[in-house]
């Protein structure tokens, strides 16, 4: 009953659609069904951007609906990234889509950036200078090692957000051995790792206070004490930046 009234109240409130809400980049993941809005003038006229795309002046696409939305829509092509090993990272070679080419300089021009980096499938929202205590002890690293975080679902700034595409991998892009197994593949897709640089330095290892758990058995006076003291790796985000288009194309 209560939930029904709440739902009705929400319907009656007549909220504007999400694309009309301010201060939030509205981003689609797949395809470009909605016309992107023109770029705000201060960003368009900044010399910083025109320096980055000298040969390709931005032409705002034809917009049929007018709105006061400040942010742009960026899409990420849904290309399955090859799995990297711990030592040799993968380098995707798919060409950048036009929306990325248009909007990446805008994202790059607006600092600071944030990133949702995924470590072992778990998301961590980070910015430069953050200290991150991982919930596990990272194997095989020493204090001072520099890690590259290369899996991110979101890279953004205040007004712009680059989101990863939908994870549905097309059957044609799968290797031959995995035909028919697409439904058990990973559900998460990631932003193209050429577009950003995220470096973290290993600060050290932190330990929690010793925990003592008393274990008892029935009809026995003896109480066993189980001790545990877990260790956690501490990282610090040393560098987080979005690459320029020249850099990205220079990698390929």
């Amino acid at each position: 009953m209560l939930s029904r009234t709440v739902r009705r109240a929400l319907q009656d409130a007549n909220l504007p659609p999400t694309y009309l809400l301010p201060f939030r980049a509205r981003l689609s993941t797949v395809g470009h069904t909605i016309d992107p809005e023109p770029v705000p003038e201060p960003l368009l006229n900044s010399a910083h951007i025109s320096r980055q795309t000298p040969t390709r002046p931005y032409t705002p696409p034809v917009s049929r609906q007018s709105s006061t939305q400040p942010a742009e829509t960026a899409t990420q092509p849904t290309a399955a990234l090859p799995a990297p090993t711990s030592t040799s990272p993968s380098t995707p070679t798919t060409p950048l889509s036009d929306s990325i080419k248009d909007l990446l300089p805008l994202l790059r021009s607006q600092t600071p950036h944030y990133i949702t980096a995924h470590l072992h499938g778990r998301p961590y929202l980070l910015t430069q200078g953050d200290t991150l205590r991982l919930p596990f002890l990272m194997p095989g690293v020493q204090p001072g090692d520099i890690l590259r975080l290369n899996r991110a679902s979101v890279v953004g700034s205040r007004d712009y957000t680059l989101k990863a595409g939908a994870p549905a991998a097309s059957v044609a892009s799968l290797p031959k051995e995995e035909l028919g197994h697409a439904d058990i593949r990973a559900k998460q897709s990631y932003v193209d790792e050429r577009l950003f640089v995220c470096r973290a330095v290993v600060m050290g290892v932190e330990a929690e206070p010793m925990r003592i758990k008393e274990k008892t058995k029935q009809r026995q006076r003896h109480v066993r004490q189980v001790k545990s003291k877990h260790k956690f790796t501490v990282l610090r985000v040393q560098e987080l930046r979005v690459r320029s288009l020249e850099e990205v194309e220079g990698l390929a």
């Binding site: 995924h118 890690l147 995995e178």
Partner: peptide, 29 residues
């Protein structure tokens, strides 16, 4: 489901294991 090739247990485990998301770029040593 009907599939073309059977997968071993190791392959199935590998497919559902998420990516580590990092690699060591430079070692302190």
């Amino acid at each position: 489901a009907e599939v073309e090739y059977p997968l071993t247990r190791g392959e199935m485990k590998k497919m559902r294991t998420p990516d580590p998301g990092y690699y060591v770029e430079r070692r302190a040593g």
